[in-house]
Design a protein around this nucleic acid. Sequence first.
DNA 1: TAATTATGACGAC
DNA 2: TCGTCCTAATTAC
Length: 332
Amino acid sequence: MPEGHSVHRIARQFARNFVGRPVAVSSPQGRFADGAAALDGREMTGARAVGKQMFLEFAGQAWLRVHLGLYGAWDFAGEILVDPTIASANGRMGQTNQRGTDAERILDDAGENSLASIGAPRKARGHVRMSEQTRGIADAGEAEWPPPVVGQVRARLLTDLTCADLRGPTACVVATPDEVREVTDRLGPDPLVGDPAENEERFVAAVRRRGVAIGQLLMDQAVVSGIGNVYRAEMLFRARLDPHTPGKRIPEELVRELWRDWTRLLAIGVETGQMMTMDGLSDAEWRAAMASRDDRHWVYHRAGLPCRVCGTEIVLEEMQARKLYWCPTCQR
DNA sequence: TAATTATGACGAC
DNA sequence: TCGTCCTAATTAC
């Protein structure tokens, strides 16, 4: 499950590979048959993300709204032109990829939030072939086209060159412009959408108005868009903040710091495709963190293990029916 | 082979 | 606070 960074990456892949082209839309599984028929053959004219929601715009004032939920994912196949802003999946921020060809990298990445499969952790399906604009051809053989449907594919979007399969979404619906506005109006600020200063003020006001625990507020998509269970736990640790602290009791400057931290983490997530939340790592530590989910976080998924800072056992508790991990010594 | 798990959100009570 | 929905990988047996 994809938190906000994945959804932005997906939107950029659509912008790069689908926008400006007519798209064949189908629902191999059948559960999106009506919507697919309504969009089939239209040109895609825009692609954008707000928090965990993605909106694909089609000619004729029609939108496709997709929310991946807990285990949705997009699989891309065929030719994939890589958006340069999300291309450094194995490199440090701002650095270029050091090992292998781009094509190899894409295949190596398959199974994580790679360029070929974005969303829930799963192996990429189909054959991924990079375009000539990149350096390699991963699959020189004659892959079947369009790719065979495997599993439960709710929606398939197909251009002459690129295929995108959607499975397991919590929402996949055709929407009018008004309906798109209704959805976005209910969403809290996203650091990658709109005016930065205005966004920060909205977040600060929303948090400091409420007596609800900050651990709940960060997961509330009306307060801030795109944060999920992993980023929540990690951000609270990075701020050394007790998850139970009521929003209105947090000093304003600390709330602002939370917002700036989300801005920072989201940028890293969009660029690398991974929820890297640990700072100040050596090159060796960074490589280990990128390679293993277990080495990537301060507290998430570390119940019972010693805190990386103080050694106290990381606590696991349920908050709003979600698992919350935190260090009772560092976060107070 | 079955149970468990997951980065989410909604609606009923 | 619960139950519910969506799918597939991983883990347990």
